[in-house]
Design a protein around this nucleic acid. Structure first.
Lengths: 219, 219
DNA sequence: TTGACTGTAGAACGTTGTTCCATAATTATA
DNA sequence: TATAATTATGGAACAACGTTCTACAGTCAA
């Protein structure tokens, strides 16, 4: 499967010594973690969550297996690093939402949420569906939780903006943002599992969002 | 871990023969599949998806490991059997929805959906979150898909009833039922993952449903 | 009763996450 | 720069997992 690639890292074979005749190259210490996470992302995107094994990632990075444990604390740490990347990108995607008016921006935010999930289905799966079961029962590190909360905050901002303009009623923006999250997450989660039983998932998604906006409209 | 239980199935040791002196009891053929699925449910409910191993289920049932393969086609078949049970129960739960009027029945249906997911979190996880990764890439058998569709049909019926009474507008009940599913699934999926960031998840759930109903109200 | 079927126990295989080790290359210190 | 402390490497090894294969023996049907 990986064939002759690893031979490139053998720099020389100075003597035909008995035990360890060949010199080994070594990844600079400062690069190990970054390269492992980059390799993990490549494996995840290319082959999906099921193919993300510690050995596959180490081979993809050209780094010793042990590096995953000494630098990232094992597979769970590797996945946590990917979660941080994923939630960071989702946050950036949602924060970039814009539109001609406050409702247009809310609609764009919803559209971006779906596009992110469809463009990054494997990322979305590990972020929201535990597509890679955790080996140990420990909770995610605080950074991951905080980045996930940052994505939610982007929704709160959009809701606040729409409420300030009077387009919707949101006395408690967090409550309404949660309703928005429920709707968009439910829609994309079901779509990723093939459980949108209507002919046009995109149209149904838009309709769901419009129903929400109508339900939130000022009386 | 299972200690002395399996000794109970050794009925006698008639002779001190050299190789296989002990007589073995045998599960009646007609019972093997049913008992395996029952044991799998017990393990799933008690210990969660991560503990549902073929060996654990066979031990729980007191049935030889091989039975899972000869009767159910392996772990995936075992999980499919559980999915069938789970979707069947969800369908029954939703079909039992009732209320003083058509909107009351819709509200009860939404309430029942959440209660089912919170009362059966491990079932919900394998039904909607692939909490047990499939070993082979094959699709679920038709029965599973049909039973999942039956659960959705229960939602369609409730929507049709509400539309017929004029409480909501649903020219295409399937479209509206899908919007309802998006909302309730999104809410419970996020709640099961601890991602309801409002103080009172139950209240936010109800509010989400009310916003949906308001958005679907007849103009 | 007899033969076909099939559950049982056990071993075994490959893959997985994980740990440990001696070795050697890099990095930091004096 | 010389020396010491770090740390990446490669390999073996472990337990747990899904899966397959086997001889054996209990059950079921002709």
């Amino acid at each position: 499967m990986m064939g002759a690639m690893e031979e490139a890292r053998i720099e020389a074979a100075p003597t035909a010594g008995p035990y360890h005749p060949r010199r080994r190259s070594r990844t600079p210490s400062a690069d190990v973690e970054r390269e492992l996470v980059a390799a993990a992302e490549a494996v995840l995107v290319r082959d999906g969550p099921g193919a993300l094994t510690v050995r596959a990632v180490a081979a993809e990075a050209g780094i010793a297996l042990q590096g995953v444990y000494s630098r990232l604390g094992g597979k769970d740490g590797l996945v946590d690093a990917l979660l941080l990347v994923g939630f960071g990108r989702l946050t950036a995607t949602l924060e970039a939402a814009q539109g001609p008016d406050s409702l247009g921006r809310l609609r764009d935010c919803g559209r971006r949420y779906r596009e992110f999930s469809l463009a990054n289905p494997h990322f979305y799966a590990i972020m929201f569906e535990d597509a890679i079961p955790r080996e140990r029962e420990e909770a995610h590190p605080g950074e991951v939780t905080e980045q996930a909360a940052a994505a939610f905050t982007a929704l709160v901002r959009v809701v606040e903006f729409a409420a300030a303009s009077g387009a919707i009623s949101a006395p408690e923006p967090t409550e309404v943002a949660q309703q928005l999250w429920n709707t968009v997450h439910g829609a994309v989660a079901l779509e990723l599992k093939g459980l949108i039983l209507t002919p046009d998932p995109a149209a149904t998604y838009t309709a769901s969002l419009e129903t929400l906006i109508r339900g939130l409209a000022t009386a």
